[in-house]
Design a protein around this nucleic acid. Structure first.
Length: 1124
RNA sequence: GCCCGGGUGGUGGAACUGGUAGACACGCAGGACUUAAAAUCCUGUCGCCCGCAAACGGCGGUGCGGGUUCAAUUCCCGCCCCGGGCACCA
């Protein structure tokens, strides 16, 4: 038979389908093995050659494990909710389900061509109601759970309610946002709404005002991991911080376990490191500094009670959300503004307060992250007054207006003068607007309505978090974040103006601005002092934007001697810098290392840093001014998305606006149909458009949907029992298949999916629903296959003063280095650059030879004009070229780059398969190098694999299609070749070193061809070795050998070590480390005998240069080294 | 800045716990078969030196500079470069 791969692949595929060879069921008599690929999102672009890399690797491994006698679960499905389909829906009006289904079809067709051994009967799709029913079910479980620090696990909320009813919350040790305590009696007297609000502070799924990453362009919030460098990961749109009511998951409860769990799983170092970074644990200590007035007069706490949280001592496993403290900052600020209204503000206020215009107005009220001058919440109407300085803030105000409008507010503005001169006109305009706006029945309660406002005189403390408590005697100042809630309270009157200005400045800088110039030192003295808890000395309190409000307590003790940032701050403002380590000078530079002997530190003197840290914590705890404390960077995961194409959150709101979960027997909450996939006019998410979509016909459903990572956080469990209608998976399936043995996927999911799936797994484990607490024992990150981007080398000679380009040339790759001779004159400078050739220019390039002909470039310029360089320079083009047959051209260089449709460098696997076959494609992708490594796609090397397959085929069939296999006994040499290969391939598959497997098989086939060996007894085992890599051709040849059952069901050969034993070895003999000659010795000879022979060896005498060898080192079976 | 990876021919890459650096493959050069091409096969291919040439031989060589060792791509110290993660995280 002829080697016609497309016919073979077609035939074999049919055979597999008929025989259902990849179907698996639990079988207690066999050991299981679970190989999983990361869930693909079915994008419209289909697969490119980079995608299947991981699938091929996992498929080889799965097939190998099957041959080794394991019952292998190897499923595939689709993460089919997601933004791109929805963006497309918004543009075209087409339902995302239609697009998604179509894309899935393309994906499936592409995957089918590649010969994967997936059990497709187990396919799941996250957007399938039968699947997301259980995603919703798990959400409900999260909602009805809290994290008990005493037992260090999640528990049903009922146990907490019981505790509240019996003992109040004082004895509860939970990860929560609850700050105030209450007794059992108080609990019983709380209204249903109050109880609900309190429980939300404990639930693992909760709704609360949180600072979120709002992406206006996508119209949704994003999780932290979906934001990179201030822009959205998908699409690259700007993201801003915003305070919103949001569903979140309390992943922070699991911070420590997520960190510890990394120790026991076999994942790559870099991935574990990313997760560790993301969790960001730091151990240290909180310290409270008492605030004194200048003259030692204590300042008194004023304002909000219920805010003692900044002073709280950490409960194990707990943490403090910085975002929450920002909320109170806004409120504080609002309160201050209220006390100093302008004349116009006051006048307007007197005329609209107390429902003078029928509706209740509030002044200086926080809305999102702004403070509105006046707002009517019932009508979502904001009235802003602008002074004369308004012009400077025009842009800012514009932004703010847009943002508020997005939230459904209407903003109207008046000038101060208008109010003063034409009050009645202003009032009637406001009245008109009020009339025109729809009524909102449940206005948000104001902070005053929500909280209590006892103004009991109390001492003020600043609490800091530090990882270096040992440096406490080196603290020469305290710095507060500008947003810190104490800023307004401690600032002394004479510094009020400067502080206000500074805070205003700092607040108006965006995150990105701050990130951009971190080196810039800014700050402001508050006038206040705190008392050093040990020395009693006064320490000034500063405000500086280098302190983050969201980390720790939003305040630091400035230790300029031993913290680089503090040193910069202190040097800039002339604050004292002291060293607390013996013989360490810190005047120029801080000494941040945790080593040395303490000095200038009272009771710490003479101690090592490490001992000093624990000693200090002891003392601090003894004094009751702080405690050892652990901080995590990890934040709770925002779970709601203002999007259509996602799982509905199974929550409805009752008459009292209390969130309740939908009855389990009513799941799934099916995604309703909507007329448009856009937010409503009032800024509600798209689900608000759904007609008559009410729970039990009357209650509002939650309108946000779940994020993309919801379904993928547990899908691997579903594969074990994908069609179960009564449970998320049966206990039988879960107990048999357990967790994933080998998980293959990209490292871009390090801090997203892979953290969330671990979180959900631990949660389900806590509830006793699964018997394991990690999703995957071993995880391999496949590298990306990069595209090739062609680069053009360009040189400019430029006049530095006029910037005029006087000379401009494209350089051929080979003569890049020779440009200096073309410099015109010393006063000009040359610049060499390379830029990528992208569409449309790419179409003018001879891609096979990677050259650009002069005529084509000229044509490109003519047809497209300004392609990638300035016209004027294009006219000055000169050439440093190579030429062949009088045709001028530039040889281009290239570099690996992202494979992307936009860059015109995408290679479609279908094309490769058509040309070389799937087997060859699989083999080549593996042959390219280690799977974890990123590597550029280059079709040039694929011929080698193609030749190998043909050669392999020709061991069975000759060119005329004649069958060559015979039944002769293999020779010893042939057996040795075979068994060496079996050993090598077996070992290398185990260690996932697939490239060397392919090499080993190539060597084997080369050798067998050389020996003209066509013996069944050598070829049949070879076929089994090849079958995980090239399943089609292997199956075909297997059939030709006369087997009726698929090769998939066969057994992997076992190598026979005895056949590999060599009797002698050709030793390289080195003299003084340099290999000189080769000598053959029997492996049974003793080292002494070899030494004797070597010493007298004729061939070596000349290297001894007459000296006698001092020593002979013999490494058995390796080499011999003679020392002279 | 900190933390992880990594740096080997023209290219992708190989080298077990320190033991013949460059396996295997691509590309290139030459040759065989052929009217020719494709396909296939054979030979050579790290650099430099000696040499008409080949065999043979010599020297250097795994980012750079040191060190340990009989022996270093591998271990140690110091640096440079590339990729990735985190980033005023106290």
């Amino acid at each position: 038979m002829e080697f016609d791969f497309s016919k073979i692949e077609e035939e074999v595929k049919k055979f597999w389908d008929q025989e259902n060879v990849y179907r698996v069921e639990p079988d207690p008599s066999l050991p299981k093995y679970y190989v999983l690929d990361m869930f693909p999102y079915p994008s419209g672009a289909g697969l490119h050659v980079g995608h299947p890399l991981g699938y091929i690797a996992s498929d080889i491994y799965a097939r190998y494990k099957r041959l080794k006698g394991f019952n292998v679960l190897h499923p595939m499905g689709y993460d089919s909710f997601g933004l791109p389909a929805e963006q497309y829906a918004i543009q075209t009006g087409q339902h995302p389900k239609i697009t998604t289904d179509k894309n899935i079809e393309t994906f499936r067709a592409q995957m089918d061509k590649l010969g994967f051994s997936f059990d497709w009967s187990r396919e799941v799709r996250t957007s399938d109601p039968a699947f997301y029913k259980w995603t919703q079910w798990i959400f409900i479980r999260l909602f009805h759970s809290w994290y008990n620090c005493k037992t260090d696990r999640a528990e049903p909320i009922e146990s907490l309610i019981l505790e509240f009813a019996q003992n109040g919350n004082a004895g509860v040790d939970a990860v929560s946002d609850q700050v105030s305590t209450f007794s059992a009696e108080e609990w019983s007297n709380f209204s249903a709404k109050q109880k609900s609000d309190i429980l939300l502070n404990y639930r693992l799924a909760y709704i609360a005002d949180s600072w979120v990453n709002w992406c206006p362009a996508l119209g949704t919030v994003l999780a932290n991991d979906e934001v990179k460098d201030g822009v959205s990961e998908r699409g690259g749109y700007p993201v801003e911080r915003k305070l919103m009511k949001q569903w979140s998951l309390r992943i922070t409860a699991y911070a420590e376990r997520l960190l510890q769990g990394l120790e026991k799983i076999d994942w790559s170092d870099s991935l574990k490191e990313s997760q560790r970074n993301w969790i960001g644990k730091s151990e240290g200590c909180s310290v409270r500094f008492e605030v004194n007035g200048e003259g030692g007069t204590p300042l008194h706490r004023r304002g909000d009670g219920g805010e003692e949280d900044t002073l709280n001592v950490r409960k194990p496993g707990g943490y403090l959300t910085g975002e929450k403290s920002l909320g109170s900052i806004l409120r504080d600020n609002a309160r201050e503004n209220r006390q100093a209204p302008t004349e116009a503000e006051e006048m307007l206020w007197q005329n609209i307060r107390n429902r003078k215009l029928e509706y209740k107005f509030r002044r200086q009220h926080p809305v999102a992250n702004f403070i509105a001058d006046f707002v009517c919440l019932q009508k979502k109407l904001i009235v802003e007054l602008d002074g004369n300085d308004h012009k400077q803030n025009k842009e800012y105000d514009h932004e703010r207006t847009r943002e508020l409008e997005r939230l459904g507010y209407k903003v109207i503005r008046f000038w101060n003068d208008e109010v003063l001169k034409n009050l009645s006109g202003v009032l009637s305009k406001i009245r008109d607007e009020l009339k025109a706006r729809p009524d909102l029945l449940t206005p948000d309660p104001s902070p005053e309505e929500r909280g209590i406002d006892p103004s009991s005189p109390e001492k003020l403390f600043i609490e800091v978090f530090t990882t270096r408590p040992d440096t406490i005697f080196g603290a020469t100042f305290i710095t507060l974040a500008p947003e810190h809630e104490l800023v307004g309270k401690i600032t002394t009157p004479e510094y009020k103006k400067q502080v206000d200005e500074y805070v205003h400045y700092a607040k108006n800088r965006s995150e990105r601005d701050r990130m951009a110039d971190v080196k810039k030192v800014t700050g402001q003295f508050s006038g206040a002092y705190v008392e050093h808890p040990f020395s009693g000395k006064p320490i000034p309190v500063w405000i500086g934007e280098y302190v983050l409000a969201t980390y720790g307590t939003g305040a630091v003790m400035g230790v300029p001697g031993h913290d680089e940032r503090d040193h910069r701050f202190a040097s800039h403002f002339g604050l004292p810098i002291v060293s607390i380590l013996k013989d360490v000078d810190v005047t120029e530079k801080s000494f941040d290392d945790k080593q040395g002997i303490l000095a200038n530190s009272d009771f710490l003197n003479g101690l090592e840093v490490k001992d000093a840290i624990s000693k200090t914590i002891d003392e601090i705890e003894k004094k009751g001014i702080g405690a050892g404390k652990v901080n995590y960077k990890l934040r709770d995961a925002i779970f709601g998305r203002q999007r259509y194409w996602g799982e509905p959150i199974p929550i409805y709101y009752d008459e009292a606006s209390i969130p309740n979960t939908v009855e389990e027997n009513e799941l799934p909450v099916v995604l309703p149909e909507v007329d448009k996939y856009l937010p409503t006019e009032t800024g509600e998410p798209p689900l608000a458009r759904a007609k008559d979509w009410k729970y039990k016909g009357k209650f509002d459903y939650e309108h946000t949907t779940m994020p993309g990572w919801a379904g993928s956080s547990w899908y691997y469990i579903r594969y074990g029992d994908p069609h179960n209608q009564n449970e998320f998976a049966s206990q039988k399936a879960i107990n048999y298949w357990q967790n994933v043995d080998l998980y293959v996927g990209g490292d871009e999911h390090a801090t997203g999916h892979l953290l969330y799936v671990r979180f959900w797994t631990k949660f389900l484990f806590d509830l006793g629903l699964i018997p394991f607490d990690e999703p995957a024992k071993k995880l391999v990150n496949q590298g990306k296959i990069q595209g090739r981007t062609l680069l053009i080398n360009e040189e400019l000679v430029q006049n530095p003063r006029t910037q005029e380009i006087v000379y401009h040339a494209f350089l051929s790759d080979g003569i890049k280095g020779k440009v200096s001779q073309y410099k015109l004159d010393g006063s000009f400078y040359t610049r060499q650059t390379q830029w990528p050739i992208r569409p449309p220019l790419i179409s003018y390039v001879d891609k096979d030879r990677e050259i650009l002909y002069e005529e084509n470039l000229k044509k490109a310029i003519e047809e497209n004009g300004d392609i990638a360089f300035k016209k004027e320079s294009a006219q000055k083009i000169e050439w440093l070229i190579e030429s062949e047959t009088n045709k001028k051209y530039i040889k281009l260089s290239w570099a690996p780059d992202k494979m992307s449709k936009r860059y015109g460098n995408v290679v479609n696997p279908d094309d490769v398969v058509t040309k070389y076959g799937a087997d060859c494609f699989r083999l080549y992708e593996m042959f390219l190098g280690p799977i974890e490594q990123h590597k550029p796609w280059d079709t040039k090397g694929i011929d080698g694999c193609f030749r190998f397959l043909k050669k392999f085929w020709r061991l069975f069939n000759n060119e005329e299609g004649k069958w060559l296999v015979n039944e002769e006994e293999p020779t010893k040499e042939e057996l040795k070749i075979l068994h060496r290969t079996i050993k090598k391939v077996g070992e290398d598959i185990e260690s996932m070193s697939f490239n060397t497997c392919v090499s080993a098989m190539m060597i084997c086939v080369n050798e067998l061809s050389q020996l003209d060996c066509h013996k069944r007894k050598t070829l049949e085992p070879m076929l089994l070795l090849l079958s995980p890599f090239a399943p089609f051709i292997s199956e075909k040849l297997w059939q030709q050998l006369g087997h009726k059952e698929s090769i998939v069901k066969a057994k992997f050969p076992q190598h026979d070590e005895s056949l590999l034993v060599e009797t002698s070895f050709e030793y390289p003999v080195a003299v003084n480390g340099k290999t000189r000659v080769k000598m053959n010795f029997d492996l049974n000879l003793s080292n002494d005998q070899i030494e004797k022979e070597v010493n007298s060896a004729e061939a070596l005498q000349k290297y001894f240069e007459g000296k006698t060898p001092k020593k002979v080192i013999v490494v058995k079976g390796r080499m011999i080294n003679v020392v002279v």
